[in-house]
Computed example of a mutant assay.
Amino acid sequence: MADGLLVFDGYCGFCTRSVGWARALDRRGRVEMRPYQEPGVPESIGTDAATCADAVQFRGPDGVRHGGAAAVNALLDTVTGTRVPTTVYRATAGLQERVYRWVADHRGRFPGMTPYCESHPSECAAST
């Protein structure tokens, strides 16, 4: 069983590419990564699709859910088995959240790949 769950936008090519990078870092399979469009996924981490559409979400081994840059750092903590990313985040949270928001708001302009939900349509609800 995975230690964490990352919930991402499965209709975003940049998000799908980013999840691929996270999977490459997660050599021990510590994190499950699912699109929020998969039925029941947002509810499984105690939120809704609108929150997941706004920012990546991560529920860690402690059961706490994080969003945005905090989620990315918590994910990195889990896959690396260290607390270094979150320690750096604490010192730079304001900057990291602003950068995350800018990237999230412009994610359609970044290079990506075929979105997860286009490659796995049976796992995703209709386009949102």
Rank of each mutant, 00 (worst) to 15 (best):
Ser127Trp: 08
Ala53Ser: 12
Cys124Arg: 06
Ser18Asn: 03
Ala126Phe: 06
Leu6Gly: 03
Leu6Ala: 00
Phe8Met: 00
Tyr36Glu: 01
Arg83His: 05
Gly10His: 12
Pro85Gly: 09
Asp48Gln: 02
Val99Ala: 14
Thr16Asn: 09
Gln57Trp: 02
Arg17Glu: 11
Ala55Cys: 00
Asp54Trp: 06
Leu25Phe: 14
His66Thr: 08
Ala125Tyr: 11
Met113Tyr: 08
Cys124Val: 00
Cys52Asp: 05
Val88His: 00
Pro35Glu: 02
Glu32Ser: 14
His66Phe: 10
Leu76Phe: 10
Glu123Lys: 10
Gln96Trp: 03
Thr92Asp: 10
Ala74Phe: 05
Cys15Gly: 04
Arg27Pro: 04
Arg90Val: 00
Thr92Glu: 08
Pro85Leu: 11
Ala71Phe: 02
Val56Cys: 08
Phe110Ile: 05
Ser119His: 06
Ser44Phe: 12
Tyr116Val: 04
Phe14Gly: 01
Glu97Met: 02
Ala93Cys: 03
Gln37Lys: 06
Gly4Arg: 10
Gln57Phe: 01
Gly108Asp: 11
Cys117Phe: 11
Gly60Gln: 12
Asp26Thr: 07
Arg109Asp: 15
Asp9Met: 04
Thr92Leu: 15
Gln57Cys: 02
Val41Cys: 12
Glu43Tyr: 02
Gly13Leu: 07
Glu32Leu: 15
Ala55His: 07
Phe8Ile: 05
Met33Asn: 04
Met113Gln: 13
Ala70Leu: 06
Asp26Glu: 13
Asp9Arg: 01
Arg65Ala: 11
Val79Asn: 13
Asp26Tyr: 08
Val84Cys: 01
Thr16Cys: 13
Ala125His: 12
Leu25His: 07
Leu95Cys: 14
Met113Asn: 06
Pro111Asp: 11
Gly40Lys: 08
Pro115Met: 12
Asp54Lys: 08
Leu75Phe: 13
Gly20Arg: 12
Arg27Leu: 14
Met113Cys: 15
